[in-house]
Design a protein around this nucleic acid. Structure first.
Lengths: 180, 180
DNA sequence: GTCTATAAGTGGATAGAC
DNA sequence: GTCTATCCACTTATAGAC
């Protein structure tokens, strides 16, 4: 595997695990096993490899989400699949966990791929929610996005991997969608 | 105002704004206007002032939440009040925004006051949710906590202060609780 | 392209005067 | 109690050999 790929893989893992602010160039070097100079040859600055890592993480998650939605024909099945999908509750969402990272706030180029992912997710959820006939489609779409992101937060803060599952199950109950 | 109070106030603001990892002793000094030595006189280490700041933020939020619940007599009114309360969507939850801070994960003493707040919140929500007669009380309680926390996340990532309100409104709709 | 060496600044903490 | 001065490690980045 070439140095650039090893650097990008290391950066993706570290950004997911620690965020951008708390990840140093030395950590990326140590995890990838390449030298100082190579990092600055392939990426001109910290912002450059951070942006590449976030863009790659967003592409991965978008592909997985698209696959999940296209694997189910009806809105109800899509919502059930989205809210029962196994998730790494204690690790956090690859993108959502960056919401309060100071370096994300300071650089719109780092936030843009994340913002685009959530806009894409809303567009997938909207017809599925609309098909259930519920009132306030936009509110329910946002509640679905939020319950997943918030479930990661409460799981992590309570050190309880089940909190996220419980929250998703509770929302499915309110939506009137029975477990499979 | 004495130096200790000025230091603690500065630390509270910075921890809310930037988290623990991204807040340096120098920032606390600059915001409080006291000297280097005073910080280390009143607090022996970064962990010490960070813990004091988090404990104080948790006490503030707990008091506000208790006040909100005790101001409303019925479960339905408590849930409506909790989910329509004005919130600083783009600033984030004082406690929830710390979920993925690496220094919180590394130190249980920093996480404990946050964990205790959420356990207290669940205890306030449980009888209110139970009174609505909904199935799966624990799931719905967790969903309510999660929608608020996740609403902060999606608001911040989309730079849209309305996303949190929309998510809360959608959840109220699903709960069958009409706006006041 | 990849490496080692190094620079300038900051982070967390201590020393010791007043 | 509060202050200034200082320390060592680390962060981000550059220089320049191979």
């Amino acid at each position: 595997m070439d140095a650039r790929t090893r650097l990008l893989d290391a950066a993706k893992q570290l950004v997911w695990d620690r965020g951008v602010e708390a990840t140093s160039p030395n950590m990326v070097l140590a995890r990838s096993g390449v030298g100082q100079g190579s990092l600055y040859h392939h990426f001109g600055s910290k912002a450059a490899w951070a942006e590449a890592a976030i863009t790659a993480l967003a592409a991965d998650l978008t592909a997985e989400t698209d696959e999940l939605f296209s694997a189910h024909p009806t809105g109800v099945e899509q919502l059930r699949a989205y809210l029962t999908r196994p998730r790494p509750a204690l690790d956090g969402c690859r993108l959502g966990r960056l919401a309060f990272d100071p370096e994300i706030r300071a650089d719109d180029a780092l936030r843009a791929p994340i913002s685009a992912y959530f806009e894409h997710l809303r567009a997938l959820l909207r017809p599925a929610v609309h098909a259930t006939g519920v009132d306030d489609t936009d509110g329910v779409v946002e509640a679905i996005c939020a319950v997943v992101q918030g479930g990661y937060v409460t799981s992590r803060l309570s050190d309880d991997p089940d909190a996220l599952d419980r929250a998703c199950r509770g929302l499915l109950t309110l939506l009137g969608i029975p477990p499979h």
